[in-house]
């Protein structure tokens, strides 16, 4: 009787060939090039301003949490985080829902003037009237100093519609037809068939929309002004304002006297802000990645 170990072919000891070694080295260098900028931001955000000027390094040279303490001192940062999270969650849900429904309708074979409608959506990707008309429109419909300005204008986006429509068109038409024979209506088919089958592309859209929502601050700057904007400002805008204020070069000696006590330079503040900004997205990306790759490939416009 032969033992199991004897039956099994002898495991070949892996040898590191020259080619593999070169591959590992090259890949490590590529990884380092990708990862180091982020690591640099991280370590600089935990360094004193003086040590940042000393160049590139691997670990914080002179550890300091001043930059983060400075961010914590921003007035109303708590409410701004609530607003930022709210707009990200609600805005993403609305975008996914509206874009997917639009895409479903545009992909349907019975829609009259289908191509015309589709092209009208596409046109908005290339043509726009400029910011002033947009500002006037948004103001005219009462969205100034209104939380809805963060989510309504982003509800329908042509690029997302193209991705989802292309994906939906890859779903066999027979599935939809059989559901129609069983008496399912448009909304039921959308809700119970299209959405579950479109998870990969929807996950992709969720990532895109959430990142956009989380990072956007310009709508806050233009549409949240004055006395009616209390507690409606987003985290990103407050951070941006803080950065602007710290970066203003006050050429007066009074400015210098005022600034002399500040232990945080604009650079270290920028680093801390960058990290605060990208951290939530860094947390979300790995969980969505498996859908993301699949979705973007399947939803890609095919020639």
């Amino acid at each position: 009787m032969t033992t199991a170990s004897a039956a099994m072919p002898k495991k070949k000891k892996k040898r590191l060939s020259v080619a593999n070694t070169i591959n590992y080295v090259v890949l490590f260098l590529l990884m380092f090039i990708c990862v180091y900028p982020m690591w640099y931001i991280f370590i600089n955000s935990f360094s004193t301003p003086a040590s940042i000027t000393r160049g590139v390094f691997i670990l914080p040279y002179d550890f300091s949490t001043e930059a983060y303490q400075n961010l914590g001192d921003i007035t109303n940062i708590g409410s701004s985080i609530v607003v930022a999270v709210s707009r990200t969650v609600l805005g993403t849900i609305l975008t996914v829902f509206c874009c997917s429904f639009c895409a479903y309708i545009l992909a349907h074979r019975y829609l009259p003037c289908k191509k015309l409608f589709y092209r009208l959506f596409i046109v908005t990707m290339y043509l726009n009237a400029g910011f002033i008309p947009y500002y006037l429109t948004v103001s005219g419909i009462g969205l100034r100093n209104n939380f809805l300005v963060y989510i309504l204008p982003y509800a329908v986006q042509a690029y997302f519609i193209i991705l989802i429509k292309t994906y939906i068109e890859s779903i066999p038409g027979e599935l939809v037809e059989s559901a129609e024979i069983d008496g399912a209506g448009i909304v039921r088919i959308y809700w119970q068939m299209i959405l579950p089958l479109s998870k990969p592309i929807l996950a992709t859209i969720v990532v895109f929309a959430a990142v956009n929502q989380w990072n956007t601050w310009s709508d806050d700057m233009y549409f949240m002004q004055g006395r009616n904007s209390a507690n409606l400002h987003c985290l990103q805008y407050l951070l941006y304002q803080e950065l602007q204020a710290s970066s203003v070069v006050d050429t007066s000696s009074a400015g210098a006297a005022a600034g002399a006590g500040i232990k945080v330079s604009p650079t270290s503040l920028r680093m801390a802000m960058s990290f605060v900004t990208i951290f939530p997205i860094l947390c979300v990306y790995p969980f969505m990645q498996r859908y993301f790759t699949k979705g973007i490939m399947l939803g890609a416009v095919k020639g």
Partner: peptide, 12 residues
């Protein structure tokens, strides 16, 4: 949505 873009002058 197209009309909204051209309403700027009136609103102003």
């Amino acid at each position: 949505s197209f009309a909204a873009c051209s309403n700027g002058g009136d609103t102003a």
